[in-house]
């Protein structure tokens, strides 16, 4: 088992390196500091969502609401700063808090009422985006943030985009959580066999709830970075990000059925999608449509990754049937 997913990540790493070499060979100015910083900036928010989507999917769940929650948190952040005149960094804390609360709503409905995560987060997907639109009357945007705040999304620290440092911190934390703590162990056990985990005395409901609350809180953090990068807070922030995040996670070798997967796989998945999108748009010199192109690619890649995962799993033969006597 372990070898199988290790191998998956190795393949992904090779693909990523090949991608980079290919684009560098045929594209213009691909491996320049500018372009690399560009790729990093454009993928930090989706990367953050993918990181925290990993534990959710490991438990056998899914969270479709993170993109909408990002939008709601962005709007909240804008309002706290623009209308209540909170300092940006305090408002950012507020946005993260709102994200955590959104995650709590998901967690409560899933663990308390035992509703399927899919339909719950589909409902909150609509609810959170709708709240964001309602709060801003659909179109209102908050702009003119102070330069000190915009630096988060647009400046460098030690030669690296500032938000990349935030990403690294979160990535290390999530990696440790999933791979080095009992919580991570529990996520997997729940994903493989929720009943088995309960019989082993693991706190199943609490762990599932934690995964969704974490996803919500980090969606809030991603919202703050998003606002800083695009310099405005608007209700349409993060549309479609849930899909990009899920794609990166699945591409990174995490099974959509739970249990199997890794955070480093997710990181490779994020990088592979980002490089592919950026590289293709450069080769085809249609930078204007890079968003559409990467959307199509993300969707197609997700299906291919899922199909490949299922076909590979099927190959070694179905699981043995339970016996009886």
């Amino acid at each position: 088992m372990k070898k199988l997913w290790l191998r998956h990540e190795m393949i992904l790493l090779v693909v990523l390196v090949l991608e980079i070499l290919l684009f560098n060979a045929i594209g213009r100015r691909f491996l320049t500091a500018d372009n690399v910083a560009n790729i990093v900036r454009q993928s930090v928010e989706i990367g953050l969502l993918a990181l925290v989507m990993t534990p959710v999917i490991l438990t056998g769940g899914i969270d479709l609401s993170v993109g909408s929650l990002l939008g709601l948190c962005a709007v909240t952040f804008g309002m706290l700063w623009g209308e209540l005149h909170w300092p940006p960094w305090v408002a950012a804390t507020g946005a993260v808090g709102v994200g955590a609360m959104g995650g709590c709503v998901n967690a409560a409905l899933i663990t308390r009422l035992r509703l399927p995560p899919l339909i719950v987060t589909l409902g909150t997907f609509s609810l959170f985006r709708g709240l964001a639109e309602a709060l801003t009357s659909g179109t209102k945007a908050y702009t003119n943030f102070p330069a000190s705040f915009l630096a988060l999304g647009n400046s460098f620290f030690l030669g690296v985009p500032v938000q990349a440092w935030v990403f690294v911190v979160v990535a290390v934390a999530v990696w440790l959580l999933v791979h080095r703590t009992t919580a991570g162990r529990a996520f997997r056990a729940i994903g493989f066999a929720p009943e088995g985990a309960r019989f082993a005395g693991l706190p199943v409901e609490r762990r599932i709830a934690q995964a969704y609350v974490l996803a919500g809180a980090v969606a809030g953090l991603a919202a703050v970075i998003f606002v800083s990068r695009v310099t405005e807070a608007r209700a349409n922030a993060g549309i479609g990000y849930e899909l990009a995040a899920i794609t990166a996670v699945v591409l990174g070798g995490t099974s959509i059925f739970g249990g199997v997967g890794s955070v480093h796989g997710t990181l490779l998945g994020v990088a592979a999608v980002a490089v592919l999108g950026n590289g293709l748009s450069r080769i085809l010199s249609i930078t204007a449509f890079s968003r559409e192109l990467s959307g199509i690619l993300t969707g197609a890649l997700l299906i291919v990754a899922l199909a490949a995962g299922t076909l590979l799993r099927r190959a070694p033969g179905a699981k043995g049937r339970g016996r009886s006597g």
């Binding site: 899914i62 479709l64 899919l118 589909l122 479609g240 849930e242 899909l243 899920i246 794609t247 699945v250 959509i256 959307g295 199509i296 993300t298 969707g299 197609a300 997700l302 299906i303 899922l306 199909a307 299922t310 076909l311």
Partner: peptide
């Protein structure tokens, strides 16, 4: 392929 319909249709939606 036995894939979950939510993820499949999410992907085709965006595509």
């Amino acid at each position: 392929l036995g894939l979950p319909s939510i993820v499949v249709t999410l992907a085709t939606m965006v595509t």
